[in-house]
Design a binder for these strands. Sequence first.
DNA 1: CCGCATCGTCGAAGCGCTTCGAAAGAGGCG
DNA 2: CGCCTCTTTCGAAGCGCTTCGACGATGCGG
Lengths: 338, 338
Amino acid sequence: MATIADVAQAAGVSISTVSYALSGKRSITAETRTRVLAAADALGYLPHASARMLAANRSQIIAVSEPVHADTDDAAHMAFAMETTKVARAHNFDTLLLVHDDALEGMRRSAATQLADGIVVLDVDVDDARVPLARTLACPTVFVGIPADTAGLICVDLDFEAAAREAVDRLVDAGHRQIGLISHRPETLERGSNFPLRFRDAFLARCDERGVAHAVVHPNGHTADGSVRRLLERLPDLDGIVLSTTPDVASSLSAILATRELVVPRDVSVIAAGVSFSTARFAVPFDTMPLDAHASCAAAVDLLVQAIDGGDRSPRIVLLPPAYIDHGSVLARATPPD
Amino acid sequence: MATIADVAQAAGVSISTVSYALSGKRSITAETRTRVLAAADALGYLPHASARMLAANRSQIIAVSEPVHADTDDAAHMAFAMETTKVARAHNFDTLLLVHDDALEGMRRSAATQLADGIVVLDVDVDDARVPLARTLACPTVFVGIPADTAGLICVDLDFEAAAREAVDRLVDAGHRQIGLISHRPETLERGSNFPLRFRDAFLARCDERGVAHAVVHPNGHTADGSVRRLLERLPDLDGIVLSTTPDVASSLSAILATRELVVPRDVSVIAAGVSFSTARFAVPFDTMPLDAHASCAAAVDLLVQAIDGGDRSPRIVLLPPAYIDHGSVLARATPPD
DNA sequence: CCGCATCGTCGAAGCGCTTCGAAAGAGGCG
DNA sequence: CGCCTCTTTCGAAGCGCTTCGACGATGCGG
């Protein structure tokens, strides 16, 4: 491997001149710069990563902490890790993957050894062990998700509350009067995954505000079977369903409604909200307010880079407004006669 | 952050003594070692990653190259990247994630800058651009998957050929006479994904050897709809199906067979082989020979660490024998009267 | 014509660690 | 008692880079 000394020799200049010519941190004559760049190019020179890290006190590495809980959607996780990596590259950072139990310990390690310049924390629980840890680290950290106690943290997430409100509003505005929410499985909520709670609570509040009959169910298995049954028990004239659940449950919904002679959107309107999968390939695609991995990760990395490069570590919560993708699964109801 | 000098001072020894006490590369009296360890502990000392990398000429980082093609299964990719990371940690390596277009360029970069000590290449195509690149790199590289030209490479994969043969053998041995293979979507094969080809070819060869009627279909959409229709056109008495396909296609199979009054395993036996998803939660679970991410990645990382630490870079192909998980989806057929 | 900025380049220090060679001390043997 | 060996520890070099201070050269104004 060629070193900066080789380039310097080839270009007939000093080592520091090469460094400045390549970094642009001091002015260099155009002619000298050209010579240096040519030499670097000819030698295929790339700076030795660890030497650069040591001297510059910067690793250009972002750690990504991703615990991967058994009950969460692998494909969604993948998307977040990948998007974080992609966006980080655009900022000239590489990403280090910290998974499973090392999601926690790895944060401490990569911060203490200064392996990472910053950390992105994914799959955040309400009561996440990584929250107190992050507070003790010298290393800037951004959470994708909102834990219970956000004091001192930088957090980014879809505005699940706004999404829940918009879902309710759209259904109510279109004349729906009995709205059910199919949420996540009970174990997901018990573990303390944060967004299902936020979504559910906002859903309940908005339904109350709008004065509409409503019910919330949590699927027990991997289909919407029991959820639909329980919704219909509580809302016999169910005309709207909001989905904030897993892809397997969502994809089974149309068929299960069909067994009860219910057709989407003829009899029941459906909106999927805060979901990280697409319903476009479902037999009946649903209107969707997606949990957009790219948007969340881009925002997170932007904030992190700002903290690293710009030194702006002031705590804040950034909520991303939901987008609405129309697939025609919401049908206006005739206003019931007073 | 505490440095090795701080530890040395606290323990009342020299820097090199601390280094040797911690690394164990030279003998140190028990008493001195204890003192050093105590001091390191008290100060919360962890060696500065880049300083250590620079001095030791070792990064303890493995790059993971994962292009993520649009037509491939996100959850499966996730599993491979995660498992690689997990196994790497057990060897005291961290993993750097290289995705999308950077899967290729990142390999060059992390090798040239010596950011990575080795590379694991995932999601390998038959004609993968990363193959010729790997040959030019100084950095040891292990492929998870078998490209067309394996000259000079270290590769690990499930023995798809053996899996195909075993699937055919099990069906034929159980008296099946018309066996269909539902393979991957045409675009997956066109892109040159390597294992579907290997599996299909071995399937065809074994069916010929065993003298059994057979057909191969490639699903067009995301269900097994058309595949089943085309199989039945060509094999009117279809009694066995081998699945080497995507989870969406596989999960739709039972229901689609049901529309034709075909029940698994009463009328048709099914074996899923070389798949990275579980069929355990399907309405009818299938016998499965899994593509085990953990096994593949563990083997890959072992080989890579051997190459890095042990200097053993001799090219080789390691094929992992398939396991067979019985879910009762294969039913012995009465031998037809001669 | 001299002094003073300004510009482009250079030399050297230093980032925190590993590792080599050597020094110092301990112990055994003739 | 001296010599040699072995063990334990130390000092210093060096990994490849960034960056600071300085130095010579050039250009300008007084």
